[in-house]
Design a protein around this nucleic acid. Structure first.
Lengths: 162, 162
DNA sequence: AGGCTAGGTCTGCTTGACAGACCCAGCAAG
DNA sequence: CTTGCTGGGTCTGTCAAGCAGACCTAGCCT
């Protein structure tokens, strides 16, 4: 057991008031919202289907759907089964579709650490070629970062000193 | 307003019991856990620092840290400020470090949709060249998927029919 | 002896999740 | 016309979780 000395992290000098990660989490960062989003990505778009398929409580599902519509991540689209009245289903907006990298990264981490021995329950594929899709980190200079230790967070243009 | 007809999504035929996304969310998928993880990624590793910097309730912080240590995402490392007794700080394990793509994707989505006009509060950089880092989707055939509509989820090897 | 600090725990209140029952509109069968 | 079915919810009561704020404790310093 080594005992190390440390320095004060510079992040402490920066505010988290306007952190976009925290704000993103306010929008969809609870278990139920992410499960709902997973359902919609999987093509399950109707209230009852989602409820049965995901097991999320009806009341909570109702709240989350309304909230995600409010936030512009989902939109309600009317549809009409034959011989039946118009109903509505939930679809991803562009803002919602842009969560694909988040969901892919999540699924990939899950596949590595919490999947059953026979493999992950779900995977992402390239529509054109059918090959599996992964979320990888690349920098603007074109380098691919295979070791996550090469990534370092830093204050962005909107960073505020305390 | 167009009214569409739809088909039953095939995802309904597959179980979500062993979905690795849901399992990953069980491990760290609540707001506080993700905020804690953000703090540790930013180099804030001590209890009081995290509490003050992130504003997470002390009790909740205590729970989350214990849980994340339990799950092998963080580990407690002793350190010794001069002239003081040994204390402990929280560091990422490899399992925790592998959340970098998730956090990067989250930060990127947040930068696009919920950041202040002057820009995101935080960004990821390449340690070697200083350029900004992004989470991008690539397939095993080497194609880069710039349009998320080219991604399609499908049952993986661990998928179970209902 | 008293104070300071890191890293927590304890208490009481309020909010949210949850299961399960209920509701409502409109089609269709009897 | 009544009865039932279905999708998409709302209502109710219970119980777990979040929260603010006070309190605790070990070891160092004065």
């Amino acid at each position: 057991m080594t005992v190390t000395t440390t320095t004060t992290p510079s992040a402490l000098a920066w505010s988290t008031d306007n952190c976009q990660v925290a704000r993103a989490l306010d929008v969809f960062g609870d278990r139920s919202s992410l499960v709902v989003i997973r359902e919609v990505f999987n093509g399950v778009r109707r209230f009852d289907d989602m409820q049965r398929h995901s097991g999320v409580n009806r009341q909570v599902l109702s709240n989350r759907l309304a909230h995600l519509v409010d936030e512009g991540i989902l939109r309600k689209v009317p549809y009409q089964p034959e011989g039946s009245r118009v109903r509505h289903e939930y679809r991803l907006t562009q803002k919602g579709l842009d969560l694909y990298p988040v969901l892919t990264a999540l699924a990939e981490w899950g596949a590595r650490y919490v999947a059953d021995p026979e493999g992950p329950a779900v995977e992402m594929a390239h529509r054109d070629c059918g090959a599996e899709v992964h979320a990888v980190l690349v920098c603007d200079e074109g380098h691919r970062l295979d070791d996550v230790r090469d990534v370092v967070p830093r204050p962005g243009p909107g960073g505020r000193r305390l």
